[in-house]
Every structure is written in structure tokens, then in C-alpha cells.
Design a protein around this nucleic acid. Structure first.
Lengths: 194, 194
DNA sequence: ACAAAAGTGTTCCATATACACCCATGT
DNA sequence: ACATGGGTGTATATGGAACACTTTTGT
């Protein structure tokens, strides 16, 4: 989970989700992408609307309705703090600091959504470079799900769904070289839900 | 699908979803429930946030962000048109009239969500009175899914999940009396997704 | 040679699907 | 008696879960 440390009141010094206000002629999604770049330097490739939070008292400054989006950020991305935030930092889902506003609730909802989408959509691939080993992909799944996965069952499922294409490249950084794969396709014709 | 005919411009005379503006100290969900009562007379028991629509040009009057909710309304509910609408009318999903704004897109999204939730949540029961026959429940599922369901498989699934409790009441309105059932419980501990 | 991660098969169980007839009642 | 919707069982296919050892390389 990527969080920023707030500079301004309220909640100055605490961690929070990056965010800001939508401009008059800007779509919600474009606004979310813009704020993310401004505050973390990351240009999102995957961005999905999560939920809209609108309790009347969730911001001490007055009525603020937040349309929350979440982005998936490959771990190797370099993040540079922008103007609104003094610090950008990664946290494990299980070790979150206290958060500003109702942002803990937002994060929890995002995590639940991600878990649910993991096995009927292609979100798992977004967090990896174009070529990856099957162990890489498995680790992504394990860290999102929060538990271990059996490598044989995992690989069998990938194969039966035709999700990956093997390349003839190998990564030689470990002990036994790992075959690299690419994502095979957009099978999920997303007519349903969100 | 329940729609109202608009009285005011823009799109006067066309069908649209009931809706309106959130009051300053009102939560989004309360606002949705209030507008539904005002425009259709129906007090929602099931109301769920669907999605937020915020394209800059979706309303010709200016920038309007819509936080869409959907309610489930048992068919036997009597609907009385309120002050903002001249007419409340039911439509089949497959035979919708032209709709105001981007409301067709909203409806389509709601339908997709409902289909997806049908078999991992309890939405199917909300559309029925407290006591219902298994054929009633099956018809609800068929009309949401848009295809027929095998009665043996359907009943077996209900039983294996323990979703219904049988009563010793029968409905004598058909030829063979149908045993009536009640909804058994809230098994779905909704920690995940939305 | 050994440490460390990559890779590989089989069995079992639960759940989904396909399919057709008898039953109980009201008219 | 018959028409109508209510109600029932079996066989097959599919997908998920549990489980441990061999392979290949770098050091």
C-alpha cells in the first residue's frame, strides 16, 4: 500500500491516500490519475473506481465527497514525492500506520476488491513487467490473498485458462534459471459487474 | 426496471431514473432513499451503491456528478408518482424506452451487478415476500439472469447451502399447492469486495 | 557437494450440469 | 378426466485441494 505523509492540516504529519479535487471540466478518472502523478510521480496504467464515500462528517473542514479510485503500481516503480506530500512510502497491508480521515476504511475496501478480482480478471498481471516468471506471478497472488498457494495447482490453473504464453527467455538471477512468460490475452469480456 | 417520466427540462417527457441532489448534512445513502420515496413512494429495504458517474458533459445544465444507487423493489409494491415525476412505470430489461442523460448506461451496470451478486449474496430473496414458493424464487433468478434454470439443480443448490427454511404453509392458488418457505439466514459474512 | 529456487502428477472430493417423469389439486 | 404447475434422482463432467520429490544451476 502506497501512502503519503500529509503536510497540511487537518491530520498534518499523518499518512493518507493521495488525492485532491476534481477540476471543473475534468472526468473523475482523469482527476484521479492527475492527483496520483502530482503526489507520487506515478503515471497509472491500471486505475479503477472503487467506491464513493460521502458521510457528512468525514472531513472536519466540511462536506467532502470522495470518489475513491485505486491504481496498481508495479513494485519496481520509483516514486518521487510531489508538492502536496512530504513523503511517499510503501506499507504492507498488515502493518498500516494510523491514517487520516476514513482512509483506513477505503484501503480495506480496496484490498477486498482486489482479492475478489484476482481470479476472474487480469489484475494479477498488471503488477508485473511484460516478462515474468511463474513464481513472480505466484508471489503477487500470495501477497494479495495473504496466504500461500500451491505451485502445482497454480500452474495448472494458468494453463487451463490459457492465461500465459511462454517465451524462450530465462532469468538467471537465482539458482535454477526461471522460464519467463508473457500475459496471453484479454479473455475476460467484461460485460458484467464492474 | 422502474422508471419515471420526467416533467422538467432537460429531457422532459422522457423516462429516467429517479434521483436528485444530496442535502448538506445528509449521507449519500439517505439521500438516495429519500429521493426514491419522493419520486415513487417506495421505501427501500435494500439499497446499494452502484457506481459514480462524473463525465463533465453528462448533464447539459452543467457539471453534475451522480452517485448511483440501486434498490430492489418487490413486484407487488404499489408505486405512486410523487411531485417530481408525472408517471412511474415498470419495464422489462429487454424492452427499455429511450432514457434521459446516461441513464441507460447506469441501468446496464446495475443489471450486471445484480446478476453477479445473485449467487454469492442474498439479493434474490429481497424481491419476495417473507413466505414464498421455490418456484417464485426460481422465477426471480430466471428473470434476473435472463435464462431458464433447471428446477432440480436449483433446489439442490438451495438445500446444500441451507438458504431456505420450509414452513408448513401452502399456497393453494395454482393446481398443486406449493409449499412456502422463508429465507434462512445471513450466511454471507461480507468481509470482501463491495 | 550443497544450497536454493524451479518445476512437475496423481488422487480425491465437491460442485455443476444434463436430463424426464410422477404427483396433487381445482375445474 | 384432464390440465396445470409442483416436485423429485441419477449419471457424468469439471474444477479445486491436498500432497513430495526431482532438476538445474551458482558458489
Amino acid at each position: 500500500m502506497m501512502l503519503i505523509r500529509r503536510l497540511a492540516e487537518p491530520y498534518a504529519g499523518q499518512f493518507a491516500l493521495p488525492g485532491g479535487f476534481v477540476l471543473p471540466h475534468e472526468s473523475l478518472e482523469v482527476a484521479a490519475a492527475r492527483e496520483l502523478v502530482e503526489e507520487t510521480g506515478y503515471r497509472a496504467t491500471y486505475l479503477e473506481q472503487l467506491f464513493t464515500f460521502g458521510e457528512p462528517d468525514r472531513d472536519p473542514r466540511g462536506r467532502v465527497v470522495t470518489v475513491a479510485y485505486y491504481a496498481l503500481v508495479p513494485e519496481d516503480q520509483v516514486l518521487a514525492a510531489g508538492t502536496d506530500a512530504s513523503e511517499v512510502q510503501w506499507f504492507s497491508v498488515s502493518k498500516l500506520p494510523p491514517l487520516a480521515f476514513d482512509h483506513a476504511e477505503i484501503l480495506q475496501k480496496a484490498h477486498g476488491r482486489l482479492k475478489a478480482k484476482l481470479d476472474y480478471s487480469d489484475v494479477g498481471f498488471v503488477l508485473l513487467p511484460k516478462e515474468f516468471s511463474l513464481s513472480d506471478l505466484q508471489e503477487v497472488h500470495e501477497s494479495i490473498l495473504g496466504h500461500e498457494v500451491d505451485p502445482r495447482n497454480f500452474r495448472r490453473k494458468l494453463e487451463s485458462r490459457g492465461l500465459v504464453k511462454e517465451t524462450d527467455h530465462y532469468r538467471h538471477t537465482g539458482r535454477k534459471p526461471a522460464r519467463l512468460y508473457t500475459f496471453a490475452g484479454n479473455s475476460t469480456t467484461d460485460e458484467s459487474s464492474d
